[in-house]
Amino acid sequence: MTQLGLPEDIQACLFDLDGVVTKTAVVHAAAWKETFDAFLREREGEGFRPFDSGADYDEYVDGRPRADGVRTFLASRGIELPEGHPDDPPEAQTVNGVGNRKNVLLLERIRTQGVEPYDGTLRYIRAARARGLKTAIVSSSANTRDVLHSTGIEDLFDVRIDGVVAAERGLPGKPRPDTFLAAARDLGVEPSRAAVFEDALAGMDAGRSGHFGYVVGVDRVGQSEALYAHGADIVVKDLAELGGRA
């Protein structure tokens, strides 16, 4: 292992955004809860079963592209909506409409609350780059570029594969490994020489199925066992535990 807690042959680090680099996973979960609870209340009345921003978020939404999250969660409740179109208005009763409603709420929360990065992650990324490792941000969020810009950390990543890039290239999202594989390809590194850093179970699945050299689970919410079960090689609460100083 290197001083970064990685196998010696790792040449690149592929980082998820929400929950790994920035403290936005909780903001996403809150926006999803507000969206789904309003939808379920309107559909089922006051006796509806609310969206669980812990269990439901982790199982059906976290790490997935927005429309996939809508589709997967609603399917768990036996609900199927028409797909609609990506530019559907937030009030549309479609998969895309519900997803766009969530995004409106998310952006409002980010605008009013701001975005804060994890200091341990930033120190780790800087240490990795100082040792010559390439870095990429890999996120299902279509707001990745705005978040990176607002926190002033765009320059920490050589490559960005996010929801916008995935749509442009026709890449399926997590739990499929395609976005991580695209990041490794853009960096000119074999997947077996790249490490994946993820907090979502869908991201663990992507790291495992993509046959990456090392998969680091970041446990911010007490789901260490689940992260291991979904393919993590190691689970830490903060990347500072892996070592590395810029």
Results as ranks from 00 to 15, higher is better:
residue 6 L to G: 08
residue 235 V to H: 06
residue 99 G to K: 03
residue 190 E to L: 12
residue 212 F to V: 09
residue 152 G to N: 08
residue 86 P to S: 06
residue 46 E to T: 11
residue 109 R to L: 09
residue 122 L to S: 04
residue 165 V to W: 12
residue 43 R to A: 14
residue 48 F to G: 13
residue 65 P to K: 04
residue 84 G to L: 05
residue 164 V to I: 15
residue 39 F to E: 07
residue 22 T to E: 08
residue 55 A to L: 12
residue 6 L to Y: 10
residue 106 L to G: 00
residue 74 L to Y: 07
residue 170 G to M: 06
residue 71 R to Q: 11
residue 107 L to I: 00
residue 217 G to N: 03
residue 137 I to H: 04
residue 105 L to S: 05
residue 168 E to N: 05
residue 182 A to P: 01
residue 16 D to H: 04
residue 189 V to P: 10
residue 69 G to P: 04
residue 221 V to I: 14
residue 205 D to S: 10
residue 154 E to A: 05
residue 69 G to Y: 08
residue 92 A to E: 07
residue 122 L to D: 00
residue 118 Y to C: 01
residue 119 D to N: 06
residue 69 G to I: 08
residue 184 A to F: 01
residue 227 L to C: 03
residue 168 E to M: 06
residue 161 I to Y: 11
residue 207 G to W: 01
residue 116 E to L: 05
residue 231 G to A: 08
residue 166 A to F: 02
residue 232 A to E: 01
residue 125 I to R: 05
residue 171 L to S: 07
residue 6 L to I: 14
residue 234 I to K: 07
residue 101 R to P: 01
residue 133 L to R: 03
residue 240 A to C: 05
residue 160 R to N: 07
residue 145 R to K: 15
residue 155 D to L: 00
residue 15 F to H: 02
residue 190 E to N: 13
residue 143 N to D: 14
residue 73 F to Q: 12
residue 47 G to I: 07
residue 16 D to G: 04
residue 78 G to D: 12
residue 216 V to C: 03
residue 85 H to V: 15
residue 221 V to N: 08
residue 81 L to K: 05
residue 140 S to R: 02
residue 84 G to Y: 04
residue 239 L to Q: 02
residue 44 E to Q: 15
residue 107 L to T: 01
